[in-house]
Simulated assay, not measured.
Amino acid sequence: MIDERDGGLDRRQTLKCMLWAGTGVVWTVAGGVPSSRLIGSAKAAEGSFSFVQISDSHIGFEKPANPDARATLSAAVDKVLAMTDKPAFIIHTGDISHTAKPGEFDDALQLIGRAKLDVHYAPGEHDILDPKTRDAYLERFGKGATGGGWYAFDQGGVHFVSLNNVVDLKKNGLGSLGPEQLEWLEGDLKGRTDSTPIVIFSHIPLWMIAPEWGWGTEDSAQALGYLARFGSVTVLNGHIHQLMQKVEGNVTFHTARSTAFPQPAPGTAPAPGPKLVPAGELRKWLGVREVVYTPSPATLAVTDSDLS
C-alpha cells in the first residue's frame, strides 16, 4: 500500500516508489521530470553515496511463519554483498532479536558483520524487553548513544538521527519518544541549516498507520514540528514488516520489509502478528532497502527489493 500526498512539497525533492512483480522500481522527480530505474541498473552519480536499510530480523524466531530467521537475515546480507556499488553503511531499524537474549544479539552481529560495513542501529521493542536486556542491547549496539539509545551522525552532507521510540510504549503499544529525547532532538537540529538533508530512523513509524495495532508514535507531532523548516526530510522505520509510504509536506515516510516474516496489512486480520505464507513464497515478502543520496538536487532515492 502506498499513500502519496504531495502537500506542497518542492517537486525537486519529491520521491515516488513503486513495486512491480516483486522488484523495486524507483521514480525520482527532479525539476518536474520523472525518471526511473530498476534495482541495480544504474550507479550513483559522482559525489553521491548509498546506504542500506534492513529491519526486523527477529533472530531467535523459529515458528511456522519462518522456521529459520537466521537464514533469511543471511540472505539479506548476501543481497548487500552482491550490490555493484558498495554502500557507505547499513542502518538497522530494530527488532534485531526476538527475545533479546545475548546469544541472539551475538548471532545477529556475526551475520550482519559479514557485510563488512559500518552499521547504525535503532532499537525495537523486542530488543529491550526490560532494563536488563536494554543494557545488553546498548552494550552491543548503542555505544556512544545518549540517554536511552538515541544519537546522530553526519555522512556526505546528510544529517542522520537514530531515535528510540520503543521504551515507554503507550495504549495498544503505540511508540513514544518522551520529553528527554524530544528536548535532545530539538537541540541537535538547532545547529543545522534549513537546506541540510535530514534522515530520521527509528523502529515504530512516526506516522499513525494503525493506532489500534500500535503502528504509530504518540508524540511524533512534536518531533515533526522540529523538522518542519528543513527542505528534505526522510523518515525510515520498521516494525510493521511491509512497505508503506506517505508524503506530508517536506517529509517522506517509508516503512520497511522484515528479513524474518511478513505481517498482515491493516484491517485484513484481527491483530498484527507473523503472517504465514507458502514456504516457497516467503522470500518474496522479505527484503532490504537501498537509499541513494545525490547532493544536487537533494533527492533521496529509495529502492526496495525482496529476498527471492
Rank of each mutant, 00 (worst) to 15 (best):
G231F: 01
S57Q: 10
I91V: 15
N164A: 09
K43G: 15
A108M: 11
G191T: 14
D127W: 12
R192W: 00
V167W: 12
R12Q: 00
A71I: 01
I112R: 07
A30I: 00
G187N: 15
L286R: 06
V77L: 11
G60K: 05
P67E: 09
V158W: 04
F141S: 05
L224F: 08
P197A: 12
T268D: 09
M83Q: 15
G214A: 07
L117T: 13
V291I: 15
V29D: 08
V288A: 03
A260G: 04
I209H: 10
D154Q: 12
T93L: 01
T196Y: 02
E281S: 06
T93C: 04
L286Q: 03
Q53A: 10
D304H: 14
T28A: 13
G249M: 07
M244D: 10
L73D: 03
K43H: 08
A269N: 09
M208A: 09
R5W: 05
T23V: 13
R257V: 06
I2Y: 08
R37D: 01
G238N: 09
A71L: 11
G249K: 12
D68L: 12
K116P: 02
H98N: 15
S41W: 07
V235Q: 12
W27K: 05
R140C: 05
G187R: 14
Q245L: 13
M1H: 14
P297Q: 03
L129N: 10
H159I: 02
V277M: 00
K16M: 06
E186S: 11
E186V: 02
R229I: 01
D68W: 11
R5K: 11
G60P: 06
P264Q: 03
L276K: 14
P123E: 04
Y226C: 01
R114M: 08
R192P: 03
R70N: 03
F160G: 06
K246A: 08
Q155D: 02
L177A: 06
A256R: 03
G214P: 12
P123S: 13
G148M: 04
A75Q: 07
S97T: 15
V167I: 15
K132Y: 05
T99D: 06
D10N: 13
G231I: 01
E139N: 10
P272C: 04
N172E: 12
V292M: 04
P179H: 12
S35M: 02
R134W: 10
T255P: 04
S202P: 02
T193I: 03
K246L: 15
P205G: 07
N66M: 06
L174I: 06
L73E: 02
I39S: 04
E139F: 03
S308D: 15
L169P: 07
S48M: 07
E104C: 04
H203F: 07
I2M: 00
Q53G: 04
G7Q: 08
P266F: 05
V167K: 14
M83H: 07
G142K: 12
G124Y: 09
P211F: 05
T234Q: 03
T259S: 05
V277L: 00
E281N: 04
D6W: 02
V77D: 06
M83E: 15
G216K: 14
D127R: 13
P274N: 11
P211K: 10
T255S: 15
Q263P: 03
T234C: 13
D304S: 13
T84V: 09
R134C: 00
D168F: 10
I96F: 11
R134P: 00
G178Y: 11
I2H: 14
G273Y: 08
A210R: 13
S57L: 09
D106F: 03
A71R: 14
T234M: 06
D135F: 10
P131T: 13
G32C: 00
